[in-house]
Write a protein that binds this DNA or RNA. Structure first.
Lengths: 239, 239
DNA sequence: ACGTGTGAAAGATTTCACAGCG
DNA sequence: CGCTGTGAAATCTTTCACACGT
């Protein structure tokens, strides 16, 4: 078949509530009509991680079988996942790791920096702030917000903690923000989500254990830590 | 139809890798042949959270419609999810919140305490340790482990940090542990998983960004934080 | 020969429609 | 009458088999 960038990418998918799976939770989320499955996108991100790890030691090439073994899925699925977006391999040979990394990064929109703000500078928020993986993939946490007067004005990792009520002026003077991470208690999560949406944030990563309501154009992914343990508990008791 | 406890609970499901979705992760995980869907279990845990929140303010009764609205799913799904396990509602009326909570907790195996150990006392590990939700649902973090000599011997939240190499003797003297939380870097996650499995841990909650290999009787749920952001990035670039 | 790419089959989950019962 | 419980249909995802290209 001739080269073709994406086979079916007309109607952008709306929103997801993945489990996490990797637990996250949850996270569920189904593909919208004739769309690329949500789970394909999750796996693509996992393939990318594996490829980046292998890049430093690898031979330069990888087959769908090898990638599948690393990702603990089967090789048909690896090929199917990739084939939604184009033909990246060479028959009889496999995929060139470096170029596959480039392609997957492009698919996932990682070829540019994304400005992120973090709301909720508690234990979890601080842990997320110090998490290396975000910066490595181009996610730049550029603002910290909280509602606790004792925290506002303090500096954490070179970033000033601001009042959530100053969010609008922050965006006006510092430029648009694409993603908001919500690491606040359940009772204030929806308020924070509304505030973020109001200033133009288009993606929410929610760690509060409550399902959020957001307009359909805002992507919402929730990670529910307790839910994941409860799921384990269920399977433990099934024996 | 006559009362019947569980419709299909013969072959216990094996393992899942949910996204979290609730990010986590990821995390996918499909039901095994004729089994109860993994996603049903995740939603059950979410329903439980909602019910517990509503219990304090509610009228005592809830319909599948109301619960569905809170959980952002549709009411058919709520009823189907519950019907896998029994008939808990009253036709024409709805579900009694208190008794539904009791039933769901029983289904999820939350009617007893589960001993949990945490490996990796970095930022994320500490955040998990201080996370309220775990204890509330009966998950008791009873041991901390790390490999950093600077941390071993220190005390965090009344728990001594121990060397991962003393895990076996910890289990021997303190009793069995059912669940292990892995909050270590990717390069040591598989080693930690192996160590945990070797001392009899039956459930793993993995925060390292790498798919783990574990025997089929060990439930593994992964929460991959970066993956969740990358998924958001994908949907952001689809417009 | 070998491994990718993909249409078609199989399998799983969700939605629907309605019977059933308080 | 209203809302649950559920078989059947619709939809979505994964698996498979094999044609194709190098």
């Amino acid at each position: 078949m001739a080269k073709r960038k994406a086979k079916a990418t007309k109607t952008a998918a709306k929103s997801g509530r993945p489990r996490s799976p990797s637990g996250s939770s949850r996270k569920q989320g189904r593909a919208i009509k004739g769309e690329i499955p949500y789970s394909t996108i999750v796996r693509l991100a996992q393939y990318l991680r594996i490829l980046e790890r292998l890049q430093t030691v690898g031979t330069g090439k990888i087959s769908s079988n090898e990638l599948a073994r690393e990702a603990k899925v089967n090789s048909f699925l690896v090929r199917k996942d990739l084939s939604y977006f184009g033909e990246f391999g060479v028959r009889g040979v496999g995929y060139e790791i470096k170029s596959l990394i480039r392609e997957v990064r492009k698919i996932l929109g990682l070829n540019r920096e994304r400005r992120v703000i973090l709301v909720g500078v508690g234990h979890l928020g601080r842990a997320l702030l110090s998490y290396k993986g975000f910066a490595e993939e181009g996610f730049c946490i550029c603002g910290l917000f909280d509602s606790d007067p004792a925290k506002i004005g303090t500096t954490v990792r070179n970033l000033e903690v601001r009042s959530i009520f100053t969010l609008e002026e922050f965006v006006e003077s510092n430029g648009a923000v694409e993603i908001g991470i919500i690491a606040v208690p359940a009772f204030s999560a929806q308020f924070v989500a509304n505030t973020l949406v109001a200033v133009g944030v288009k993606g929410l990563l929610n760690f509060a254990p409550i399902p959020l309501t957001a307009p359909p154009h805002v992507i919402t992914v929730s990670v529910d830590l307790t839910t994941n343990l409860e799921v384990i508990s269920y399977y433990l008791s099934q024996r």
